[in-house]
Amino acid sequence: MIDLINVSKRYHKDAPKALDNMNLHVEGGQLYGFIGPNGAGKSTAIKLMCGILRPDEGTVRIAGHDVAGDRLAAQQQIGYVPDNNDLYDRLTGMEYLNFMGDIYGVSAADRKAHIEKYLNIFSLEDAAASQIRTYSKGMKQKIMVIGALIHNPPVWVLDEPLGGLDPRAAHLLKEEMRAHCQKGNTVFFSTHVLEVAEKLCTRIGIIQKGTLRAEGTLEELRSGEKGASLEELFLELTDDGGEEDA
């Protein structure tokens, strides 16, 4: 479903590589957790998958579509939740969801069913008519999630999706993520919360300084370090961690 093949990216000529010859393969049915310290290249990788950035070298494929060559088709397969939800705060929640529905060509009947279902799940019915800037951080995150999933995409790409959500909403979203994968779809998400990755993911990738330091199931990652927790593995693999943003 998601393929990064020898992908490199730097933001300008003199900058260090934000991603350095990265290879990543995520299959259908996998719930993939992407972890790494600040500035490791997580957001860059996600932006490349979503077609926001173009790779300097290499190929990014989503559900078989080359993001550089057939961007629109690749993007149609993705539901993307950005890490920053401070976007269209002058639109009402409903206007935003309709905007996303129109962009992805969702019929009126389908969008009604989807919007009502998710507004109900996330308890946002009363807020849908208000402008997004009146929402709390968690409410903004919820409306972004509903908008990203409005076209029922096979690939979910979520950048820090649980940040700001209350425990109930976080639990519901995690359930939705699991259910989505059980249908043979893919969920790729970045997180700083190692416990979430540990409990939720079927596969985990650890990135540091633009390169994938380790990847596999939790058991595979632990195989070298018997009995080590994900936290211990993470600290060991990212020991030379930098702080600059990428």
Binding site: L91, E95, I103, G105, R111, E125, A129, R133
Partner: peptide
């Protein structure tokens, strides 16, 4: 900012249009 507590159940709130119109409306609003 004052909130609007209206519950949107009416079908008119779920009307679909083209991506162009969606972008136009977003820009205008």
């Amino acid at each position: 900012v004052p909130e609007n507590k209206k519950v949107l159940k009416d079908d008119k709130h779920f009307r679909s249009s083209t991506p162009f119109m969606a972008c136009f409306k977003r820009e205008w609003r």
